[in-house]
């Protein structure tokens, strides 16, 4: 069994008065793809954003409880969220490349974190990241062109390359395929499966099939509660909770 990478203990999240997440306890394993599923508004993105403290940027958002990565509390006073985010990369639902060249998109993270000592090293990081994101062949001849000029699927892969370039340990993906066609989706899914070898991947998805295809563990959220968490195969074939069962079979959500 792989070791525990992320461990959440009694996580409660409030947006002002809204209690968006209640008492979430979960242990996410390293080198595993963990899928978060659940009906819209149940708090999947909220929980995902807790893991790299992106919720800090939302003023009304308060997070209670502990989230440990490698047994270290990321909400500890001494933790610098910026440093944390270099370790916990994120891919957003909507592809959001910087309006810069493809190269600069990927090179930005390594640059600000000083991961490359010189240009050849940076070039290597860029190439490796683009290869990881299965974009190298399409992009290698147009590295100088704006990233915003790529197709939606290519943009999303560029965003994955950008996230991978900072050498994170955890990769969070919030519905990374929601804007993509089936072919691009298949490419990204394949990619996620490969990424699993090096990263702890957490993916939010609305597609049961996708969750079943790419993930080893699945967490089902409902109305701010983590209802059920376990091996994907078990969740889909033999759910313990009635709500999980009805969601999976399409009766709620």
């Amino acid at each position: 069994m792989d070791e525990i990478k992320i461990s959440a203990q009694d996580v409660n999240v409030f947006y002002g008065e809204t209690h968006a997440l209640q008492d979430v306890n979960v242990k996410i394993r390293d080198n595993t793809v963990t899928a978060f599923i659940g009906p819209s508004g149940c708090g999947k993105s909220t929980f995902l954003r807790c893991i790299n403290r992106m919720n800090d940027t939302i003023e009304i958002c308060r997070v209670k409880g502990d989230i440990l990565i490698d047994a270290e509390d990321i909400y500890d006073r001494q933790v610098d969220p910026v440093q944390l985010r270099a370790k916990v990369g994120m891919v957003f639902q909507k592809p959001n490349p910087f309006p810069k060249s493809i190269y600069d998109n990927v090179a930005y993270g390594p640059r600000i974190h000083g991961l490359a000592r010189n240009k050849p090293e940076l070039d290597e990081i860029v190439e490796k990241s683009l290869r990881r994101a299965a974009l190298w062949d399409e992009a290698k001849d147009r590295l100088g062109q704006p990233g915003t000029g790529l197709s939606g699927g290519q943009q999303q892969r560029l965003c994955i390359a950008r996230a991978v370039a900072t050498a994170p340990e955890v990769l969070l993906m919030d519905e990374p395929c929601s804007a993509l066609d089936p072919i691009a989706t298949a490419q990204i899914e394949e990619l996620i499966d490969e990424l699993r070898q090096n990263y702890c991947v957490v993916i939010v998805t609305h597609s049961m099939q996708q969750a079943a295809r790419v993930s080893q563990h699945t967490a089902f959220f409902h109305l701010g509660h983590l209802v059920e968490y376990g091996e994907t195969g078990q969740i889909f074939t033999n759910p313990q909770d009635k709500r999980t069962e009805s969601y999976i079979t399409g009766r709620i959500g």
Binding site: R85, F98, H113, C159
Partner: peptide, 27 residues
């Protein structure tokens, strides 16, 4: 400037100031 640009910058571990000066301000 779309908020997604700020998110993108913060997401790769840029500080708020870096996000503003590298991405938001030029736009």
């Amino acid at each position: 400037v779309p908020p997604s640009i700020r998110d993108a910058a913060l997401g790769v571990g840029a500080s708020k100031m870096q996000a503003v000066f590298h991405h938001v301000l030029p736009l």
